[in-house]
Structures are given as structure tokens and as C-alpha cells.
Simulated scan of single mutants.
Amino acid sequence: MSSFFDLPPLPQVPVAGSDMTFPVRRVFCVGRNYAAHAAEMGVEVDREAPFYFTKTPWAICHSGATIPYPLETANYHYEMEFVVALGRPAFRVSTDDAMDAVFGYACGLDMTRRDLQQAAREKQRPWDLGKDVENSAIIGPITPAAEFDIAGQHIALAVNDETKQDATLSDMIWSVPEIIAHLSRFYHLEPGDLIYTGTPSGVGPVVAGDQIVGTIDGLPPVALTLGDAE
């Protein structure tokens, strides 16, 4: 049988030091994984278990891009994140075995239509319109796991060269192995899955013309420029 139309191929993310790319299968995002960020959002941290939302692979956007200010929002926010890329299956794994599934790490931005997210939250509705936005999962090149050890590295973000977010990876409430192990109880995690692990405090709005740069010590930075609205 043949299809009525063709779909675009899965997004591919560059891998640092390689001519090969990382195909994106799914995008998971951890909510409220930094206590200070939860506080600035006016909510409490659930310390019983992490929670998640998702973005489609088509939300992936390469670092260095210029994107239009998104549709139907007047309050578009940056969120700097540490991204974990999986290269092996993980299903009901323990925290001791979880890191075996990791392919590498990257800097990422979880861009958010905050006004739409907050409106949905107030009505106890899903966050999809606020979070699963075209070009909202920006990612830098992936560094292979063998070349990066998680050790409380500095994570920061600047808008137009002014620092807005400043924390360390050790500030995360849920560690990478804890996240992978927990998520693998609910999904058959597979190669190509990305996990955005949450953002520190200091999130805020951007407007057309703003330039965003996010950094994590030891990883290639992630950059984004906001263009005019369509």
C-alpha cells in the first residue's frame, strides 16, 4: 500500500566530533525539577515522584536558528535545560542501571507560551498549547556520554548578554538516573528519546529581536534569536 502523502523525516541532532547525527524519536520534559523555579511559579515541588509533559519531535529546532515569535501568545518564556539523549532501550530499569541507556548530553531550551500554560493550569487542563509549540525544543550538539561526567556543572542563560538564569546541575531535585528509572516504569524508552530535565529559576519573557544563549560547563552552548511574529 502507498500513502496519500509523505511525512518529513525525523529531526536529526548533530553529535559533537562526529559526522553522524542523532535521530529524535520522542521528547520528554521534566516539570518543576528545581525548587527555586517551582517557587517562582507559585507552586510546590512534588517530592514523591517527578512529573512530565511531552513535545512532538517536530518541536525540535537547531541551535543558532532564528524563529518567528510564536502564534497566539504575548508572554513567550525561555527555560534553559540539561538534555539527556538515550541510545539504548530502557524498560523498568533500576537507578543503578539507568545510565547504561544514555547516549549523550546537550544544552537545550524549553520555550513556553507562559500565558497559555498558566491559563490551562488555572482550569486544570493539559499544558499542550503552552508547551508543545513549533520550534520550542531548541537543542545544541550532543556530546557523547563518555566525554561528559555529571558533576554539578554550572548551568546558565543570558538574554542579549544579560544573565537571567544561574544555577548548577546539582540543584536538580531528581537526578538523571532517578528520572530515567522512573520514566522507564511508564514507557518503553528507546534510542532517539530525549529528556529535558527541567529549568532553574530566573525564567522570563523574550520579544522579537532578543538573542538567547544557554550554557552548561563542558557542553556546546545553545543559541536562539527571536524574529518578528508571522
Rank of each mutant, 00 (worst) to 15 (best):
N75Y: 00
E178L: 12
V84D: 05
A119I: 05
G64V: 02
L189K: 00
V203Y: 01
Q165E: 05
T21I: 09
M80S: 10
Y69M: 04
G202K: 04
L10C: 04
M111R: 03
R25L: 08
A74K: 15
M111A: 07
T73N: 14
G130T: 00
A181K: 06
R113S: 13
P89H: 11
V84S: 06
G218I: 14
Q211L: 05
N160Y: 02
M20N: 12
F148W: 05
T95Y: 01
P200I: 05
I180T: 07
M99H: 08
S18W: 01
L226K: 00
V207D: 14
D228R: 01
P68H: 12
C61K: 08
E72V: 12
T54C: 09
A145I: 02
T95I: 11
A137K: 05
F22Q: 02
P9V: 11
I195E: 02
V15H: 00
V15I: 15
V207N: 13
V43M: 13
D166G: 10
I67Y: 07
D166T: 06
G31Q: 10
Y105L: 05
K131P: 05
M172E: 09
V24I: 13
F82C: 01
A85C: 14
A74I: 03
D132I: 10
I155G: 03
N33M: 02
E44F: 11
M172K: 09
A35F: 05
L86V: 12
A36Q: 12
T168M: 13
I150C: 06
F148A: 03
I179T: 09
G42A: 13
E178K: 15
D193Q: 07
M80C: 12
Q165P: 07
A59L: 04
G108K: 00
I60G: 02
R121I: 15
L194N: 00
S201N: 14
H62I: 10
G104M: 10
T54P: 01
L189S: 02
P23Q: 09
M111C: 10
L116H: 01
H77D: 12
D97T: 15
S18A: 13
S63G: 10
H37I: 04
T143A: 02
S18K: 04
L129I: 12
A167F: 08
G204M: 09
V27I: 15
L189I: 11
V222H: 07
G42S: 12
S170Y: 05
P11E: 01
R32Q: 13
P11R: 04
A158P: 03
C29S: 08
I142L: 07
V13W: 00
D149C: 07
A65E: 14
G17Y: 10
A151Y: 06
A65F: 06
E44M: 15
P8K: 12
R125L: 15
F28S: 02
A65M: 07
I195Q: 00
E44R: 14
D210P: 07
P50F: 08
